[in-house]
Design a protein around this nucleic acid. Sequence first.
DNA 1: CTGAAAGCGCTTACAG
DNA 2: CTGAAAGCGCTTACAG
Lengths: 362, 362
Amino acid sequence: MSGLDDVARAAGVSTATVSRALSGRGRTSEATRERVRAAADALGYVASATASSLASGRAENIGVIVPLLDRWFFATVLDGIASRLAPRGYDMTLYNVTDDAEQRRRLFETTLRRGRVDGVIVLSVSLTDDEVAALAGLGLPVIALGVPRGELGGLRVDDTAVGRAATEHLLALGHREIAHIGQSVAPGGPSDPSYDIPTRRRAGWEQAMADAGAPARFVAADFTVEGARRAAHALLESRRPPTAIFAASDEMAFGVLAAARERGLAVPGDLSVIGVDGHDLAGLFALTTIDQFPHAQGEHAGDAILAAVGAGPAASSAGSVGPGGPAGSLEAAASGEQPNTPASLPFALVTRGTTAPPRPPH
Amino acid sequence: MSGLDDVARAAGVSTATVSRALSGRGRTSEATRERVRAAADALGYVASATASSLASGRAENIGVIVPLLDRWFFATVLDGIASRLAPRGYDMTLYNVTDDAEQRRRLFETTLRRGRVDGVIVLSVSLTDDEVAALAGLGLPVIALGVPRGELGGLRVDDTAVGRAATEHLLALGHREIAHIGQSVAPGGPSDPSYDIPTRRRAGWEQAMADAGAPARFVAADFTVEGARRAAHALLESRRPPTAIFAASDEMAFGVLAAARERGLAVPGDLSVIGVDGHDLAGLFALTTIDQFPHAQGEHAGDAILAAVGAGPAASSAGSVGPGGPAGSLEAAASGEQPNTPASLPFALVTRGTTAPPRPPH
DNA sequence: CTGAAAGCGCTTACAG
DNA sequence: CTGAAAGCGCTTACAG
């Protein structure tokens, strides 16, 4: 593997000039630049990332903290983030936060402080006060997505509005017995549970129900198909089953659909169901949902963190990539967001086949 | 942020000793080690990963190349990998390989060569000859999972056997008109398509059908719910529809189920359906499938790459983690696999509600 | 077991 | 625009 000095020798310049020519930082004459590039290409030179990071203080790497790697929602957000980082030459290293206290401690106290990342994106993780403090103490830009912590600059969907929208769709259809299946407090949650996403969705539902003067029935369940399925059974076998169920996520809505099928209930004839997310498979189930565009959320988070770490427009890989590199994602990245002013992300009602007016009483 | 020298000063030893005491490499007396640790803890010292990497040549970071981040299967495998790397103190950086030729070139020619990873795991990506060569030329351990390339050491499910098993389950039930929906050649695939995973599954089905003297009908579709749904419609509206469909993935099977429902066909009464994967939502659909334990696949790949990069048993983070760190995953990691001898991964038929004997002819 | 010193391979003021 | 040189913060033979 040839190093910077090999290129310098081949091009007949100093290593300093090679560095400048290849990185685009600092001035070099067009002629030298080309000579250096040619030499680098000929030698197959690629700058060592560790050496470069150590010398420059830039890691060109973003850490992404994510719970449940294998949940559709997070996977989709990750894909959105990756789609923004890669073209700018940034790597993405994943930190999967589990419930293991020791592993969490290590992540926040040690791993993140090793200087391997220029910034971090936190996805919907319930953080303890200590963890939020650790994050803030990193001295690194942090973009929180769906993290209910004002302390961290963040992007957020207005989940109260989401809960309202779902409920109002059902109310507009004529339903009054609208139950909600969600999660009241995140496990190991933040000190103020009222900031929790599920709690916000629930609050929106409660508000809409109160406005309509309709009775609100809530059943707690974890954010899984199975949990919601059991909760739905409990609701549906009660003396006065709801005519509609608002599930806090699409996966939970799938569970509700399963329960309805198992009880021989027609959807939407006997029961209307609405979820939240915009899950890939929602179309398959004809599920009406509030789409929150998770891929776009990831893209926004990616752009935001790039802007925060001051990533320039052109990719900076050694060799090859000319000044005419990919641009286009720039307006978004540079959209002058106030740090610490959580931007509000869009959502939209997608009406499909699982919601309809309630069966007229006979 | 305090550095190594701060700790050295506080502990009254040289930086060399601090490094040895904290990393566990090289001898230090118990007493010094404790003094150093105390000093490090007091100062909140965490070793710089870039400096450490540059000096030692170890990145403690594994690169994972993955297509389609947002596909359940890959997300689950990733989760499995992460579950093995994290406890050993290894980071995981993700490289999402898209169809963009330029981005791919950059990944293989540049990014991977920047010395940021100690090894790479490649997940089911169709690689060109150039890309395989680039990977081999990295001088790094590479573990391929589901990559049809003998050149790369790899772990692999015997997909021909998978195809056989699915088909034989259907044959045993009494079906003879068993159609297969799959993909014959991966898009942008390898030079020898016969090594393709989908092609192997198809081959297994063909063999089983030939052995049974049954007529084999194949319809190509991409690996999506939608693609399979369309393909299933085509099959089911033909003059002589199959009594059973073997879909090359669970998501494809979901598409088949949707098509059946849309045509008013009862499953498994009118049509039996079997998939492959062991998808999270398969239970919800009562889908019979060949489970290939993707999470375990990820764990294996994680163990294999750790063994290949020679990761020792104890975590190496600065401070805190004592010699009594997490072990237990060692037998697997050290299970003396021959490099380049693809190990065979297990799979299992999971019989649920979408397969049954065909309706008796009347 | 411990220390002095060289070195990992870049980047970047500082001069010119 | 270009070069000489210091420095980024660790690790590791090499002596002792």
